[in-house]
């Protein structure tokens, strides 16, 4: 955990400003607006869209408290599911049934407690809608909790 919110690298902006600096003080006419505050952020604020259940899409701002908790729990649980890189050794898992593409070397996979494997990006997208295995419909959270209890 801890990498849910990847911080944006703000270095590019400071580098741009830095390259302007040597020009100052050489008698050049200052630009009409040398260093003012940056213009207000114009782009419309993007509200992430979540899917409390399949076929339901709702912007984060319109989720009920119950749905917010559900989604936060899912986000947390997804991070506990094992991941791996496809190395071609598994004879069982050959294809991701979500995108219907064959696994290729180096693909990042995620394994569910029922042992079904999918591309990480494909299954994470589904798990955020429904916490079940697409292949066997096994509820993932129940299986996850029972593995904790037995180990």
């Amino acid at each position: 955990m801890g990498n849910c919110f990847q911080s944006q690298n703000s270095d590019d902006i400071s580098l741009l400003r830095g390259s302007d600096a040597p020009d100052n003080g050489h008698g050049q006419e200052p630009l009409p607006q040398p260093v003012g505050p940056p213009p207000p952020y114009q782009e419309a604020e993007v509200v992430p869209v979540y899917h409390p259940s399949p076929n339901v899409s709702r912007p984060a701002s319109q989720l009920t408290e119950e749905e917010q908790i559900k989604i936060a729990q899912r986000l947390g649980l997804i991070h506990h599911l094992p991941m791996g890189v496809y190395d071609g050794t598994s004879k069982k898992a050959k294809e991701c049934v979500i995108c219907m593409c064959e696994f290729t070397f180096g693909d990042t996979l995620r394994f569910l407690p029922c042992m079904h494997a999918y591309h990480k990006d494909c299954i994470d997208d589904w798990l955020m809608r429904s916490f079940t295995c697409p292949s066997c419909m096994e509820p993932v959270d129940a299986a996850l909790l029972s593995t904790y209890e037995t180990s």
Binding site: N55, V97, P134, S135
Partner: peptide, 10 residues
């Protein structure tokens, strides 16, 4: 076609 849909279906 609604609540029991799964992406493994086609």
């Amino acid at each position: 076609l609604t609540e029991d849909w799964s992406p493994a279906l086609s």
